[in-house]
Design a protein around this nucleic acid. Structure first.
Lengths: 199, 199
DNA sequence: ATGCTTATATGATGATCATCATATGGAGCC
DNA sequence: GGCTCCATATGATGATCATCATATAAGCAT
């Protein structure tokens, strides 16, 4: 039954993809099983053939459903490395495009607050995601491992915090806060003052 | 009817205080009208004598209910000013105590993600809150107004982002990320490299 | 073609929730 | 002491939701 197994696992992936988008757009509580299944082109009943519970889906999305994001995001500048990679990362992360598309963007600014209130399971899945991306970015920082990680942690906090706040503010601060964070983040990553033009 | 009016406005404030705590502990969706009223020592029915709707409560809490936080938080170092105030602010914000007490702490790391998904009204209330705190902190930065604001925006993004992530991570990164953010944030605010001991 | 397997659909069920209509009970006034 | 007002309580109502039991229908082997 390889044909059937394929179908099932493809459906599984489609549910995951729909959930990944809806969770970022409306939060974990805000996205219902019914509306996720509808977006995946199915009805609500079949859900439990794929997942034990909604919590199970949440954990699986956090664990693997967001990986496409960083891949797609970072694929755009895979030709770059070192300082140029870091500049592209900061500028893209704090760009107008990312500001306006939370549903296909980084999950941290939208979901970390909610995840922090949930059980150990989801938080551990998130920690794994964080470690993977931390390692990737730190590889582009020109400094010993621990110092590189330190700088990336500081810069990621800054970028995620700024994007989260920029999406909430309704005035000119929405742009100013992203520009301020971008300049400070790139300076931290490079180890010297520099300015970034956010896209 | 001054006695009665007093009673009503006091009850109003008590509902607000309970909501303020529960929203930070469980999110806007996660805290029900019923449980908020229970915490205020009342039953759910009386709620609509005080607020038009739950959305109304949310907006009012964002608009004013959180002000006590910064006051209580910053009251601890009202004797300080300038650089010392900034050091105390950063160290306190990223402290273990604040990490563990989201329900009485800064609303940004817990609620900004959810607010960004809501209507204009709540986001405008949040913007007002943000402006007030920005002005307060910028007053302690030794730089021209615009530059002071720029540095505070960068530092606040970093501190709020780091606290949000630290509350989500389950490993040693929870402490490391706060220390990294604290060091970079204070350096930005002071305009020169410095280290902070988070409490 | 027939019967079995399995993915998905239909249609409950019970819980929770925001909201509202109506009831109660106490405070202040005659 | 009885009347009135108003803050709060009681008890619906209808909606939404996660979950589950059962039904269908399409694929595959015989």
């Amino acid at each position: 039954m390889p044909v059937e197994a394929d179908r099932k696992s493809q459906t599984h992936r489609e549910i995951l993809a729909a959930a990944s988008r809806q969770f970022r757009a409306h939060g974990f509580e805000g996205a219902s099983v019914g509306s996720i299944m509808r977006e995946a082109g199915l009805t609500h009943g079949g859900f439990y053939a794929h997942f034990e519970s909604k919590d199970d889906l949440v954990a699986e999305v956090i664990g693997s459903g967001f990986d496409d994001v960083s891949e797609r995001f970072e694929a755009g500048f895979d030709a770059l490395s070192g300082e140029d990679w870091l500049r592209a990362w900061v500028a893209g992360y704090l760009s107008d495009g990312h500001l306006r598309s939370p549903d296909i963007g980084c999950p941290m600014p939208v979901l970390a607050g909610e995840i922090s209130r949930t059980g150990e399971r989801s938080r551990e899945a998130f920690t794994g995601l964080f470690e993977r991306r931390l390692a990737k970015a730190a590889g582009h920082v020109d400094a010993p491992r621990r110092e590189a990680e330190r700088r990336v942690m500081a810069a990621v906090s800054q970028a995620a915090g700024a994007l989260m706040l920029a999406r909430t503010l309704t005035n000119r601060r929405s742009k100013e806060i992203r520009q301020a964070a971008a300049d400070e983040a790139i300076s931290t990553l490079l180890g010297r003052p520099e300015t970034v033009r956010i896209k």
